[in-house]
């Protein structure tokens, strides 16, 4: 069994490198296809043809784009992610502190939302059709259908503007105590949990209910297993595959998709960095961010696939 998993991981690693290359090239092609380049964006309204030509030459952007792409690609093997076009800083320096911020936010959100969501999903499935199940459904859909910016803005209005319990902005650099940590992260984490929990709750519930209907679980029911035992012991392990996939898909949102939360709480993370990079057509920065998101995504889904395989004896 272990060897099987090891082989799978190795195979996936190889494929991951290929996927990364493909994504990298696609992102490169997409950026090049977009009208306007970094020089035109930087000069903005001042982009007269001669000014553009002059700056482009000075920034060594006259080389064909594909050549610059290959140079960048070569650089990452030596650990050099290139220099940002927009502000001449090393990409690694720009991303470093922001990545740490993003990972912190994602980590805390995961710790909060995953246990809550799984518990709600499983219990809802256990008492399917009950008032509890229905209210979980209506609440989770109701909450996820409120646009993220509205959740965040409402939270700020209530807790920061009127009650003054929490700060409206999240300054990650001003955390020294655990109390400050709670104050700074409370609202961003709750907002994000609202957004990602619904998918986990709903999918967990659906997957567990589905396995409850299989002949194998029905057999256990006939044997007289209790409802709780039935769900936890028999249904859950079989439903684990779809559940971890739903969790992985939800969590993959936490790095690149949190732009609204980063903007409203003025929390400097990588999502805003990527959006900026696209707006300024900053190729090395776009590429590195895209790679980063891709690696995290691949890591999440590969973990999900491995858990799915391990949980189902027939797949091993």
């Amino acid at each position: 069994m272990n060897r099987h998993v090891l082989n799978l991981v190795l195979a996936r690693l190889m494929i991951a490198v290929i996927t990364l290359l493909i994504v990298s090239f696609t992102v490169f092609a997409a950026t090049v296809l977009l009208p306007g380049d970094v020089v035109e964006v930087l000069l903005g309204q001042a982009a007269t043809p001669e000014a553009v030509a002059g700056l482009r030459a000075a920034m060594h952007l006259d080389d064909p784009a594909i050549w610059r792409f290959i140079q960048w690609l070569g650089g990452i093997f030596t650990g050099d992610f290139g220099i940002s076009y927009a502000n001449n800083m090393p990409v690694a320096d720009l991303i470093g502190p922001r990545l740490a911020n993003s990972l912190k936010l994602a980590g805390i959100t995961t710790l909060v939302s995953v246990p809550v969501a799984l518990t709600l999903g499983i219990t809802a499935a256990m008492w399917r059709g009950s008032w509890f199940d229905r209210s979980v459904t209506i609440l989770s859909i109701g909450i996820v259908s409120v646009p993220e910016f509205m959740v965040a803005t409402s939270a700020v209005l209530v807790f920061a503007v009127y009650l003054k319990w929490l700060p409206a902005l999240s300054f990650a650099n001003e955390i020294h105590t655990f109390g400050q940590l709670l104050r700074v992260y409370a609202m961003p984490v709750i907002t994000l949990s609202f957004v990602i929990s619904a998918q986990m709750i709903r999918m967990t519930r659906a997957a567990v209910i589905d396995t409850l209907n299989t002949p194998y679980v029905e057999m256990a029911l006939l044997k007289g297993a209790s409802r709780k035992r039935l769900v936890l012991k028999h249904a859950l392990p079989n439903a684990l595959g779809p559940i971890v996939n739903a969790v992985a898909l939800s969590l993959s949102y936490l790095l690149g998709g949190v732009i609204i939360v980063e903007t409203i709480f003025n929390y400097p993370g990588v999502a805003k960095l990527m959006v900026d990079a696209v707006s300024t057509r900053d190729l090395p920065l776009i590429q590195t961010c895209a790679m980063l998101f891709c690696i995290v995504y691949l890591f999440l889904i590969t973990t999900a696939d491995i858990i799915a395989i391990l949980s189902n004896p027939r797949l091993r």
Binding site: V27, A30, T31, A290, F293, Y297
Partner: peptide, 15 residues
């Protein structure tokens, strides 16, 4: 499809 999912949606929309 993994690769497709890895392309940032803003970039995708703009393209």
């Amino acid at each position: 499809l993994d690769a497709l999912n890895s392309i940032p949606s803003k970039l995708f929309g703009l393209v």
